[in-house]
Nucleic acid binder design. Structure first.
Lengths: 131, 131
DNA sequence: TAATTGTCCTAGTATTACTAGGACAATTAG
DNA sequence: CTAATTGTCCTAGTAATACTAGGACAATTA
C-alpha cells in the first residue's frame, strides 16, 4: 500500500493521511495484522515531514485502528476494521444530524428531504462508486 | 435583534455572527428592509472587535443577503430571504453528498440510510425544533 | 453641526498545522 | 553481534488564519 495526498487540497496533510488509511481499512485493502508503510517512507511519498506522518499515525492509534510496535512499524489492530466501521457509523449519524439541522431552516419538508437523499443516492451509485 | 455568540465555541466568531443573521433571516425575525444591529453595537454585545463584525457583515453582503448603506447601516435585501433559502438548499445538497460519501464506506445500505434519516428526523421533530 | 455608522488602513497576537532535523531506543535481518 | 530499520522525543522555526486594537475618514441622519 502506498499512501499519497493531494498537495493542492486544503485539507491538512495529516487528515488526508488518516483518511487514506481509514479508507483502506474500510475497503479491506488493509486488514487486521497488516503493516502500514513506515513513517519515513510515507513521508517521502507524500512529500511531508516525517513528524506530520507520525502525528497522523498517532491519531489512528488513539482511535484504536492501528498499533505501534517500536522498531517494527504500525500494524492494523485485530478489531481495527470493526472500530473503523463503528466510528464511521457514528460520523454518519452526526452528519445526518447536521443535515437535519440545516434542512430545518429551509422550507424543505421531511418527505422532500428523503426524496433528495434518494435522488443523490442514485446519482452516487452511477458516478461516485464507479470511480 | 441582538446578536450574541458563544465565546467557548471553537467556531470562529465571524462565522457565529453570519450564522446568527442567516438564521434570523431564515426564521423571519429579520425581514427584507430590516436593519441589522450596527457594527459597533454588535461588537460590544459579542465582545469581539468591530473589524471582526465588519468582516462577518461583509461576508453576508457578498452572499447577497444584506446590503451596506454608508452612514446608515446594513439592511436585509429585498430577496435576502430567498437568497438565504437558495444557498441553504445548496448546502443541504452538499451535506447529502458528504453523507453519502461517508455512508458508502460503511456497510450501511441505501435503505438503511433512509431509515436512519427518518428516525433521526423523528427525534428532531420532538426535541430539536421545540428548543 | 454633531452623532451615528460604515470604510480603510496599519500593526500586532494566538493558534494551528505544519517544516526541519538531531538524538535516541527498540526491533529485526544478516 | 552488528547494522539497518523503524518508532519516539525534543527543540526551533514558518506560513496561514482569525483574529485584536485602534486611528482616520466618509456618508448619512437627527
Amino acid at each position: 500500500m502506498i499512501i499519497t495526498i493531494d498537495l493542492y487540497n486544503s485539507t491538512p496533510a495529516y487528515l488526508q493521511i488518516t483518511d487514506a488509511v481509514r479508507e483502506a481499512i474500510a475497503l479491506g485493502s488493509l486488514q487486521a495484522g497488516d503493516k502500514l508503510p513506515p513513517i519515513r517512507e510515507t513521508a517521502v511519498n507524500t512529500r511531508v515531514n516525517r513528524n506530520t506522518v507520525s502525528r497522523a499515525y498517532l491519531e489512528l492509534e488513539h482511535q484504536g485502528l492501528v498499533q505501534a510496535r517500536q522498531g517494527s512499524g504500525f500494524f492494523v489492530t485485530e478489531d481495527g476494521a470493526e472500530q473503523e466501521k463503528l466510528s464511521r457509523r457514528e460520523s454518519v449519524k452526526a452528519k445526518i444530524g447536521e443535515l437535519l439541522a440545516e434542512a430545518s431552516l429551509t422550507d424543505i419538508t421531511a418527505e422532500e428531504l428523503l426524496k433528495l437523499v434518494e435522488n443523490e443516492a442514485n446519482d452516487f451509485e452511477k458516478e461516485g462508486k464507479s470511480k
